[in-house]
């Protein structure tokens, strides 16, 4: 049986979601465990529009993300300010 995730989009993605008539949060049925790129394909959101995917409050690159039914998921585009991209684990330093 398909399960769903609770999806949010931030900044310009919130506008995209609004244009599509999606609520905040938007419930999305997912077949099973998915990768980040598979999720973006399902949502028809371009990879270049997403810097990180939050899965249950933890930020990760789309390529490293795994999403399953029952998860709380959020998409953040490029543009999250400064040190938080390091402090929240968006950004590799060095």
């Amino acid at each position: 049986m398909a399960k769903s995730i609770e999806l949010r989009g931030f900044m310009e993605l919130s506008e995209l979601f609004r244009e599509r008539g999606w609520n905040t949060p938007h419930e999305v049925a997912v077949p099973d465990t998915m990768t980040g790129p598979e999720l973006l394909a399902l949502l028809d959101v371009g990879r270049e529009r997403v810097e990180v995917i939050f899965v249950n409050g933890k930020a990760t690159s789309p390529e490293a993300a795994t999403v399953a039914g029952g998860d709380r998921v959020a998409l953040a585009p490029p543009g999250v300010p400064g040190p938080y991209r390091v402090l929240l684990g968006f950004k590799k330093m060095g």
Partner: peptide, 20 residues
């Protein structure tokens, strides 16, 4: 792009999502 459009307040949803 982001700061001119949304200001520093874009951090509300980000920090909320991060649990911080």
């Amino acid at each position: 792009q982001a700061l001119p459009k949304y200001g520093t307040n874009i951090l509300i949803n980000i920090l909320n999502e991060a649990g911080g």
